[in-house]
Nucleic acid binder design. Structure first.
Lengths: 185, 185
DNA sequence: CCGGAAACGGAGCAGCTGTTCCGCTGTGTG
DNA sequence: CACACAGCGGAACAGCTGCTCCGTTTCCGG
């Protein structure tokens, strides 16, 4: 059982997770391990005992949020209005881009993290396909627009975070509007 | 006179420029200086004697292409069809994204390189403004679309190159189509 | 064809990263 | 309450980066 560990160990693990969450959100996925340890008030060895590799720490933090994405996707699938469902997904994606800058590309592309979330990515992709098919059937999509186009739009939104920090929240919103307008009939 | 340098020095400078061009185009702007030197068949010291800092080498390579961007912009300004001019600029931008992956964001955002090309960036921005005003006057733009939206679209295209290498040429084309469709009336 | 200066190459420095090692500390149990 | 050992901190290692130093080679004017 993992609960059998000493109490202080569990406490430190929580401190590390909290520090990593905060650090990733504010400084991006590339913050040094030393920095996470410093924010958590522990030594690097402690950090590495709980998360043997950097990738595992990142995966652990993202895992908390990935579930939430699935919930939102299912909610969109329940929406009777196909256009509102699809455009809402795009806007939610952009919204997420602002607050949880790192999460989105895990859902879209096969980075080094991707391997840890293959199942979630597949589910996300399938749900998106359904939404696109419905929207197309409802005639609210521009001719020729398919799931690949929507995915490309999401990818473009996700990639914005990799530009120099000056890229503002406003630009993300503008691009999201552009994507929504670009797929509409 | 810079022509007064020894002949072998000039020769090596050309070799370095050629190697940097090729390396930047194929491996991105972040290739190590050692790698550029290796490709050029010279030592790192030679590289640093001709380009005292990494930034200067990058700027020197990009400078060759920036002029070409200006030429294309002026050609677009001469186009009597406002929509063809503006959408052509977006498509050319995406095209350039494929071949010269590094150039575009210099034109758009203030990275560390930006300082070296302020004039070019300003010209590019002004020309884009003119194209947008004309397109709007011609009624070919969707309501509410301004120069900032077009710039955001270009920024999105430029940022795609920062994703993992798996991002294909095809995605760039799809995003460009999305942007063009997103600004059209 | 020779000598001094210009140019060269690559080892080396400083600083960053992820990860490991090891002597010490503090916890929980008998 | 003592003591074994899980857990700890931080120095240290390996490997990357941009950049510099300096002994050696090469050019080219006289």
């Amino acid at each position: 059982m993992s609960q059998m560990r000493r109490a202080d160990a569990r406490f430190n693990r929580d401190r590390v997770m909290a520090a990593a969450r905060e650090a990733f959100a504010s400084a991006g996925l590339e913050v040094p391990m030393r920095e996470v340890a410093r924010r958590a008030g522990v030594g690097v060895a402690t950090l590495y005992r709980h998360f043997p590799t950097r990738t595992e720490l990142v995966a652990a933090v993202l895992a908390e949020r990935v579930d939430d994405c699935g919930v939102r996707m299912r909610r969109a699938l329940d929406d009777p209005d196909p256009w509102r469902a699809l455009s809402g997904v795009v806007r939610e994606f952009a919204e997420r881009q602002i607050h949880d800058r790192e999460l989105n590309e895990v859902l879209l592309g096969p980075g080094e993290l991707g391997a840890a979330f293959q199942k979630e990515r597949r589910e996300h992709a399938q749900a998106l396909n359904v939404l696109v098919v419905r929207a197309r059937a409802a005639g609210v999509l521009r001719d020729g627009v398919g799931a690949d186009d929507v995915r490309a739009g999401l990818l473009a939104i996700a990639s914005l975070r990799r530009l120099p920090a000056t890229t503002s929240v406003r630009v993300i919103g503008l691009v999201a509007d552009l994507v929504v307008a670009g797929i509409r009939a």
